[in-house]
Amino acid sequence: MAQAETRHPAHPVPAPYTGRTAIDLDVVREIMSHFHYDDFEEAQELILSALQEVNEHFGWVSYEAAEIVAEALGTTVNRVYALLTFYADFRTEPRGVHHLLVCHGVSCYVLGSQALVQHIRDHYGIGDGETTADEQLSLQVVNGCLGVCDWSPVVKLDDSYSGHQTPESLTALINRAIAGKQAKEESNGAHSAD
């Protein structure tokens, strides 16, 4: 039937990624239950899409999650890891509570994104793909483009974009985010029973 021939991976709405998340394997299984295939070829075509959904949902893909993906699509975990370690979007380690993307597109470069990356390294001691020791902040340098070039240099902290950044404004931005989250957690803690 037409339906079987023209199928795309169904897409559960991914919850926007907030904070540092342990991977709930039941959710991975739930995501994988949306992937259907007719033959081994189609199953292989779906590996990347599946990893993308898991990565988008949790901010990273753990070994256990990779095993579930491999099993659901009839392949091996080695194959899945080959993809996880090749494509830049995927992470095999959890992110920090706050995840900072620094655009390193040409336009942002011309207007000073290099200084921002250097500043993060000097100030927080982390480089591309690393997380601070207190797990508060992780950095990803986008070797591509965030696509908001008239705001260069642009960063994306968690879900919101900020443009025309300088090292000083970036520090303020990060500190505000970290303080805000902690204040929220404290007030939540005060009201909850545990």
């Binding site: 021939e5 023209t6 795309h8 070829e41 292989q44 075509e45 779906l46 590996i47 990347l48 899409s49 990893l51 993308q52 392949t75 194959r79 080959a82 993809l83 090749f86 494509y87 830049a88 979007d89 995927f90 070797n143 591509g144």
Partner: peptide, 28 residues
């Protein structure tokens, strides 16, 4: 029939043969 496939952020996948490998679920 139609299939939509998504990549994983590798510039090299813009090269036609790499793109096809990526579609087939291997390294581009």
């Amino acid at each position: 029939a139609f299939r939509l496939r998504t990549g994983g952020g590798a510039y090299i996948c813009g090269e036609a043969s790499a793109l096809m490998y990526s579609v087939m679920g291997v390294r581009g």
